[in-house]
Nucleic acid binder design. Structure first.
Lengths: 148, 148
DNA sequence: ACCATTCCGTCAGATCATCTGACCATCGTC
DNA sequence: GACGATGGTCAGATGATCTGACGGAATGGT
């Protein structure tokens, strides 16, 4: 976070640039495709919905926000028709957040853009370095992502 | 942003985990050191203050927020004694945001934590892979950071 | 020199994101 | 069946961010 201009930038900040670039690209592409009412916060929650649906609490944990915040964002996503809540058959307290049709359309666009961006990055780095980068990041995730 | 659980995660999202982990560590360490009134948004602005001071507009550009937002955050940092604004001798319209004494103390703590975290990551990955990771991220920055 | 244009920063107001604290219903266990 | 843990919501507060409008200062062309 704190790292003024100086030769060697810290690894964490270096990781931030690609992420931010991807997020900006995604948001722009989605807006261009007519999904112009999505915010980054909503996206970060939506990105964690598993195929069969995911509990609100699980979404909150993975996104590192409180369940209130997650609930708030899911409310918006639901009102906009991207997701729906269905009762969890295994637990009457819980509900599963699932992608609705409109949500699935968004995912399709997002996937395409992600592949596009990744192809650009690979072109810039070269196949080998890109593969090394992916491998290193995957290993780093073991110690930086508490919700694997 | 959109990338539900599935084998291969996209590179951008993989980049996010280390960044988030670092930011959390920094915030916790600063709070423990008595700087418990700093927010991540303030940190992201403060991180871009160059040694001699930086203009508000430049801070806003680099952090990818509007100058209004940057101004708001600098207001808070100034009120809390972390930074100060001085006239820019080369342009009467502009002012330079500089680190104040309290800000420099924060930077010192932050630097220490960053080094600590980076050492942990390097221990997990091994020297060679860590070096590859850094090199790849630095090259990736060429195409993902508009304000180098 | 003068004017138009551009740039730096602020003010005002709105909206979105996020948190803490309190609360209820249900689950699982002893 | 009573009790602590878990899933989720309600209410209220604060923080971060945006758009739009503006005033003062620099800059470049005529």
């Amino acid at each position: 976070m704190i790292d003024p201009a100086g030769g060697r930038q810290n690894l964490g900040l270096l990781c931030f640039y690609p992420y931010r670039a991807l997020e900006a690209r995604l948001l722009a592409a989605l807006a261009a495709a007519g999904f112009d009412d999505i915010t980054t916060a909503q996206g970060r929650i939506a990105a964690r919905i598993a195929p069969g649906g995911t509990r609100l609490t699980a979404l909150a944990e993975q996104a590192l926000v409180t369940k209130q915040t997650a609930g708030h964002l899911v409310d918006q996503l639901e009102r906009a028709g991207y997701v729906r809540r269905v009762p969890d058959p295994t637990d009457a307290r819980a509900r599963l957040v699932q992608m609705a049709e409109r949500g699935r359309q968004v995912v399709a666009v997002a996937r395409r853009v992600e592949a596009e961006v990744e192809a650009e990055w690979t072109a810039h780095l070269g196949e080998e370095v890109a593969a090394q980068l992916r491998a290193a990041l995957e290993r780093l995730r073991e110690v930086t992502d508490p919700y694997r």
